[in-house]
Every structure is written in C-alpha cells, then in structure tokens.
Amino acid sequence: MTDTAALSVHGLRVSFSGRPVLKDVQFEVAAGEFCALIGANGSGKTTLLKAILGLLRPQSGEVRIEPGAAGARIGYVPQKISIDPYLPLRSRDVVALGLDGARWGWPRRSRADDARVQEMLEAVGAIEFAERRVGQLSGGQQQRVLIAHALVRRPRLLLLDEPLANLDVRSTAEIVALLRRLSAQYRTAVLLSAHDMNPLLAVIDRIVYLASCCAVSGKADEVIRTEVLSRLYGYHVDVVRVHGRVVVIAAHEPEEIRAALARDPVHTAQVP
C-alpha cells in the first residue's frame, strides 16, 4: 500500500446468504483524488461503500483508511433519503450534527463550531436555505446540505452513494463541479458511485469499474477500453463512443442471458 493512499481495499469478499456480491475487489484511492465508482444497478456499489464504511463485515479482505484530522475518517452521503417535511431540522442543524451527531449528552457547541458550520454552508452554496427545514428543500439542495454535513469534520475521504441519481441535467453538473472544487479545496479524496459515467468522465482522476463481482481501477482512458472491460466482465463487450458519450455494449449475449432465453418457451418459439 502506498503511503499517500486515502483508501486501500484488498481482496474484499462479501456474500449474502451464499451468493457472492463482491468476490475479489482490490483498488486504491490516493489522497485528494476524485474518483468515480461505476457499475450497473445491482453490481454491488452500495455493498462496497457499506463495507468501506464498516457498516457490514466482509467475509475476507481488508479496508484501510488514512486517519484524518480529529479522528474523522470518512464522510458519507447516503443514497437518496426521503426527509419528512415536518422534521424540525434546518440545514444549519443538519450540518452541525455532522460535527457531533454521534455523541451522547446534551449538545454544547463552541463559537468555533458555529464558525465551521457557517463556513461549510458557504462552501457548498447553502447559505440561502440555511435557515429552512431540510425536508422542504429540493433534491439538489438537500444534496448540498448532506455534503456539507459529511465534510464538516474534514474527513480525508468522502463517500457518496449515487449522488447524481434523481437530479436533472443542470443540478447534476452543479453537484459534480461542487464536489470537484471541494475535493481540491480540502484535499479530500472523493469516491462517488454512479451507474452512468458520462457526466463524470471529464473531471475524474480515477475510475473504479465494478462488474461480475470484481473491480478494475485506473485512469478513465486506461479502464474504459474494450479489452480491459471484456476481461472484467468475462465475455466480450465493446466500448463505443458516440457524440462524446461512452457506452458499454455486450457484443454477444452473455452466458446467463442466453441460458435464460433458452429456458423461456415463448422466446425459443419465436427465435428458431
């Protein structure tokens, strides 16, 4: 493991009731790197993030995280959560809970704490809605507040689970630009999961591509190649570039699909 890695994952193996989800996942994220975790729905992105967070115990393998300032190791923005509009928490309160939300006892916050919360709200551009209840904000606004919440303790690693899902094109671009800026500003490594890599390709330092329970990682143009991804998937896929967008297409039906089609009587009847 290199000295500068903010996160290194070795031989990670997770299975749920006997079915493997991650078989042998291995990659590193260097300090301050901006990194995308790409994979189709159900490829194990959330599982991988949860294993990194320590929310689930892998069967084997190792996750190492560089300790950050004041013990804050990982900031986390969960997959879209639905927040009750009547929850009596303003954006400011949510960010403040990022400082000490796990601690027991009655809260006593210093002036320095208040200043940090204020600074974070400014950094993510949430000042306008700092005094409003989070449950009443739009999806993009909630996303900003949750990012501030995750970053207020200055972790060295920020994990985001599908932060771009359910956002329109403009909000997507804004959130990506914001994360890129914050990553550079606070020298925080960012690992964000997404099923579509296209909005991210221009800005990421590294891509971790998850398929068939395994991962490859590297620079985007090293990974997003026909031969690399074909080896990962275990069958031939084509990387196609159209109108500046990248699409990964399976050239042949993979074994599982072919087997499923063969079992389906209607399909076999139609396709001789």
Binding site: L53, L55, I74, Y76, P78, I81, I83, L87, L89, D93, V94, L97, G98, D100, G101, A102, R103, W104, G105, W106, P107, V134, L146, H149
Partner: peptide, 24 residues
C-alpha cells in the same frame, strides 16, 4: 433523552447516516 439527544436527531434524519458516523 438528553443523553441520546444528538444521535436521536441524526437517526431520525437517516439511520444510515447515524450509523456511518459511528453512533451506537
């Protein structure tokens, strides 16, 4: 209630978030 005030608030926002932050 005073003892668990902050984790309670955080987990009513999102249980995942509270857990990821190390709340018991």
């Amino acid at each position: 209630i005073a003892a668990i005030y902050r984790p309670l608030l955080l987990s009513s926002l999102s249980a995942d978030l509270a857990q990821a932050q190390g709340a018991r």
